[in-house]
Design a protein around this nucleic acid. Structure first.
Lengths: 136, 136
DNA sequence: ATTTATGCAAATAGTTTGCACACGT
DNA sequence: ACGTGTGCAAACTATTTGCATAAAT
């Protein structure tokens, strides 16, 4: 069991949240979406617990947290996805809310070079491209 | 006067905030930092006004707003900088808080290509590299 | 004089925390 | 039985808003 491996007791809320993240179509969910979905399907789990569990999962590297926002000050909410071990960047469609994941080795390489050129090493980075569908 | 040009009355708070942004060493300031600095130098300006003015400035493209956060759930606060017309990305040092601006044409190009490949066009994008000093 | 801006205090949104009770081992 | 985890409500933080007053043109 994943949970036990990372030192977390196997409780109902933890199990249900993990299962939801594993089985969901949309891979990026907000705390509130998770809360609502679980309660709709009959699991009575507090919102505070959802937050607590998600942050435990994050620390255990079971889950990754993102703050999507395009710098234009829209309402902002964290969203969470299962951690697959691989790094990737995100493209968010501002019309549909769809999230596409991608990795571009060239972009990764340039970033590293730029950091070095300035005397730094990369700890973390976040690239989000906000897009809309091409009209044909 | 910049302010009049963008259709804003020339008021004390607006003037002082603009001047501060023009003259500050650290180019990226939070609303609260601006509020504090102005009040320290004797201008009695409400925090709400700072927010209001900054968002007017943003809409007038005098100022750009950023939400730096590395997806690791740290406290998050918007920061603002004077808008110079040019787009650039940011590198934030997690030890000193220093912000370095950069542009890489190659990265920009790849982003556009990736968006197109998925049937999208770019509306906006945000790249933040979180770094720490290279130990020599 | 009229319109717009300001300061204050209260509202909001997302998230976190304190505490008494409930659950996993 | 013991130590954790949970739900609820209250606290918190960054930001926004309503309203009566004050300033800009």
């Amino acid at each position: 069991m994943e949970l036990r491996k990372v030192g977390l007791k196997v409780t109902h809320p933890r199990l249900q949240i993990l299962r939801l993240l594993e089985s969901t179509e949309r891979k990026h969910l907000t705390a509130d979406e998770i809360y609502r979905q679980l309660n709709e399907q009959g699991d009575e789990i507090g919102l505070a617990t959802v937050y607590r569990v998600l942050s435990q999962f994050e620390q255990a590297c079971l889950v990754r947290k993102h703050m999507f926002d395009d710098g234009s000050g829209r309402p902002l909410q964290a969203c969470y996805e299962l951690h697959d071990g691989e790094h990737h960047d995100h493209m968010v469609c501002i019309e549909t809310g769809d999230v596409v994941e991608f990795v571009d080795p060239e972009i990764e390489k340039r970033q590293k070079e730029i950091a070095h050129k300035h005397g730094y090493e990369i700890v973390e980075h976040s690239l989000v491209i906000y897009v809309k569908p091409l009209k044909k």
